[in-house]
Each structure stands twice: as C-alpha cells, then as structure tokens.
Simulated assay, not measured.
Amino acid sequence: MSKPFDMEFFLAGMLTGSHATRQRHIHQAELIQAEISEHWHRLTPWAWQKKHVDWFPEHRLNRRSEATRYYYLLTVRLLARRLQKAWVFNL
C-alpha cells in the first residue's frame, strides 16, 4: 500500500510569506498535481515534464480570470524551482 503524495512536505522548504499565502500555494499545488495525475498518469512532480505543467493552465484555467491565472502561475513557478528545473512560464 503506497502513501499519497504529500505536497505540503514537498514544498515545505520553498514556502515563504504569510500563512494564507503558504496555504494558497499548497492548495493550488495539490490541485495541479491531482489534475496532472488524472490526465497524464504522472503521480508525483518528479515524473513531470514541462509539457505536463504547461497543459494545466492552457486547458484547466482557460476560462478563469487573469488574477486566478496569475496566482496559479506563481505556484507553477514555485513547483519548477522546487524541482530545480529552468522552465519558463508566461501568462
């Protein structure tokens, strides 16, 4: 039996700012992870490629406001930094 991926532990060393900001990043990262896992069958961020992360805002956030897309972009950049990838993301 495998344990579910702990996104809060994965991001623990990267999170800064207020409690609300940290919680927002964790919540959004968990949502991103769940969507990628469901669509691409990649269970952990270690298995992701840039195309998997690019897919999320293009197909899941396309009808959201610019502000929402911006906050998810910040979380995606945080995930890329945690993975030590030089991925560049734009709105």
Score class of each variant (00 low, 15 high):
A86F: 12
K51N: 15
T75I: 06
L79Q: 01
L11N: 07
R81H: 06
M7A: 08
E38C: 01
Y70Q: 10
D54C: 05
P4L: 14
L91T: 03
Q23S: 15
W55K: 00
V76G: 02
E66G: 02
H25G: 04
S2V: 08
A12Q: 14
L11K: 07
L73E: 13
L15F: 09
A80Y: 12
H59W: 08
T75R: 01
V88T: 08
H39M: 09
P57H: 13
S2N: 12
L91Y: 05
R22I: 02
W55N: 01
R82T: 10
R60T: 04
L79T: 05
R77M: 04
D54W: 01
A34V: 05
K51L: 13
V53G: 05
R60P: 02
E8W: 11
K51T: 14
F89T: 07
N90L: 11
E66N: 07
L15G: 03
E8L: 12
F10P: 03
V53Y: 00
E58Q: 09
L43I: 09
H27S: 14
W48L: 01
E58H: 07
A29N: 04
Y70A: 12
F5W: 14
W40K: 06
W48N: 00
S2G: 10
H25R: 11
A29V: 00
R63I: 13
W46Q: 11
Q84Y: 11
K85E: 09
Q84R: 13
P57C: 06
D6W: 05
L91P: 01
K51F: 14
E30P: 00
E58R: 08
L11E: 09
M14R: 06
D6K: 11
T21V: 15
T75Y: 05
H25T: 02
H39R: 10
R42I: 08
A80Q: 12
M7R: 00
R82M: 10
F56G: 00
M14F: 12
L74D: 08
W46C: 11
H59M: 09
V76D: 02
R42P: 01
H59Q: 12
E35S: 05
S37Q: 13
A67P: 01
F89H: 07
H25Q: 15
E35F: 05
R69C: 07
H27G: 06
L43E: 10
S2A: 07
Y72E: 08
A12D: 11
A67F: 03
A67I: 13
H41W: 06
T21G: 04
S37L: 03
P45G: 05
L61V: 00
F10R: 03
F5C: 04
A80D: 11
L73Q: 14
T44P: 07
S37I: 02
R24T: 14
L43A: 12
L11V: 06
Q23F: 06
Q28M: 06
G17R: 11
V76I: 14
R77C: 04
A20K: 13
H19T: 10
M1C: 03
V76A: 02
L61F: 02
F56D: 00
M1S: 07
M14N: 08
P45W: 05
